[in-house]
């Protein structure tokens, strides 16, 4: 059994909303609301959900790009919040992120060579020759050659830009990389190249990925375990094989039925309505407003988490024996 690299415990992240009047009460958007999971070393962990479900916030919380309202993030058993400034800087080398839009995440005024060299300079890694070599070697790792050193981001295609973004993430020899919608903006054929590249790098450097995406085909292909988020909470978590083939939570069920490629018509479930406003979430189970199995208990109390086999966990009243009024076959 491999050990947990990153552990999240009861993470809450609230964003304060601007008050309209001086006498108004403070209002909060509950972007992440009580999320706990752990990512094991060497695995690819997928986080799926609609926009506004809080999946990107979880990624940012892990990397300390935004501070927590409540809860703790542990890295190799140590609480990240307890790190001193120097420890924190060291730790930042080990955790990296790749964003969705490489157009926005690469500095348009700098060359590829400069972009890749910068993290090495910031962390005072080796001398000039070491850095130069490291940049070339990393470029090679992501399938580019030294002719790219003096090019600017606007001269590259979307796929090449994403390769540069990946290169700048792996150049400090990290252990853990958050890929926040890293392949969503790419064409299928390019997407396949980038996914292959990420797999290859994972094997070569024993990387651990947190893969955030809304594309279920990609997540099912890429990840070992998946967590499904809805309105800031994890509603279901489990191994890809179990969750993908037999999702239990009604939301996960609808989500996975919308993968169109292999499904027959009858099996598709079309959810009604939109994601509720996270500033004013529904009472009880957050999903009850769109759930076709909603019972009275769902509107009042929040479901607890129940286990299926092993690691497969679901938060839904349907699977909580005491609550279940109807039998589910």
């Amino acid at each position: 059994m491999t050990e947990a690299l990153v552990e999240l415990e009861n993470i809450h992240k609230y964003y304060k909303q601007r008050r309209r009047k001086l006498t108004d009460k403070n209002k909060y958007v509950k972007a992440v609301h009580g999320v706990s999971f752990s990512v094991k070393e060497g695995e690819s962990f997928g986080l799926v959900g609609e926009s506004g479900s809080g999946k990107s916030t979880v990624g940012q919380v892990i990397l300390q790009l935004t501070d927590l309202t409540q809860g703790s993030v542990r890295y190799r058993g140590k609480d990240v919040a307890s790190f001193t400034k120097r420890n924190l800087k060291d730790w930042r080398k080990k955790v990296q992120i790749v964003f969705q839009d490489p157009y926005a995440s690469l500095n348009p005024k700098k060359t590829v060579g400069w972009i890749l060299n910068e993290p090495l300079t910031i962390h005072k890694m080796g001398d000039k020759y070491y850095r130069k070599n490291k940049v070339l070697q990393t470029l090679e790792d992501v399938g580019l050659d030294d002719s790219y050193l003096n090019r600017y981001p606007h001269e590259l295609s979307g796929g090449q830009r994403q390769r540069v973004a990946i290169a700048s993430a792996i150049i400090l020899n990290p252990e853990f990389i958050v890929i926040d919608e890293g392949v969503s903006a790419l064409d299928v054929s390019v997407q396949a190249q980038i996914l292959n590249l990420l797999k290859r790098l994972q094997k070569k450097y024993n990387l651990t990925y947190l893969f955030i995406s809304h594309d279920l085909n990609v997540v099912q292909y890429f990840c070992d375990r998946i967590a499904v988020m809805y309105l800031g909470e994890i509603v279901e978590i489990g191994k890809t094989e179990e969750l993908g083939t037999s999702p239990r939570h009604p939301y996960a069920e609808a989500l996975f039925s919308s993968i169109l490629l292999h499904d027959e018509e009858e099996k598709r479930i079309v959810l009604e309505g939109d994601l509720p406003n996270p500033a004013d979430p529904p009472s009880g189970c957050p999903f009850h407003t769109r759930c076709k199995y909603a019972m009275n208990v769902c509107r009042v109390t929040k479901p607890t988490t129940s286990f299926f086999s092993g690691e497969h966990k679901v938060s839904c009243h349907l699977y909580n024996e005491k609550d279940t009024v109807r039998n589910i076959t």
Binding site: S189, L195, N196, N217, Y221
Partner: peptide, 12 residues
């Protein structure tokens, strides 16, 4: 080149 769960573990 479309990824899906049946191709898991294979190179795309």
């Amino acid at each position: 080149s479309i990824p899906d769960h049946q191709k898991k573990g294979e190179e795309l």
